[in-house]
Amino acid sequence: MANLRTYTLIYILLVALATGKFVFFEFNFAYATAIGGTIVLAVTKILLIAGYYQHLIEEPRAISYMMATAVFMVFLLVIAAGYSIQ
């Protein structure tokens, strides 16, 4: 388990990243850039929360693989379904 200091630093980072997403869309970034940047920030936030708050980095790797499989399933469904109507 990480200590309180690490948890606090991650919290501050998460708040900053959330604000970053807002900034992308409130200031004059191109729409595609804003989407791309937001995706990067969102993925970073998710990895931080899962890795450190849910302690995924301390669990057996198989748990991460299982969750990655679930996420892959979603991507598979959404991307294939989205492509099917292009």
């Binding site: 969750m67 679930a70 996420v71 979603v74 469904l77 959404v78 379904a81 989205g82 109507i85």
Partner: peptide, 21 residues
């Protein structure tokens, strides 16, 4: 709980996927 959450990833993923689709 992790296994349940893996299942919930699909539930939410499908709902969010419905939006994107």
């Amino acid at each position: 709980i992790w296994v349940f959450l893996a299942s919930d990833v699909i539930v939410f993923g499908a709902a969010i996927g419905a939006y994107i689709f």
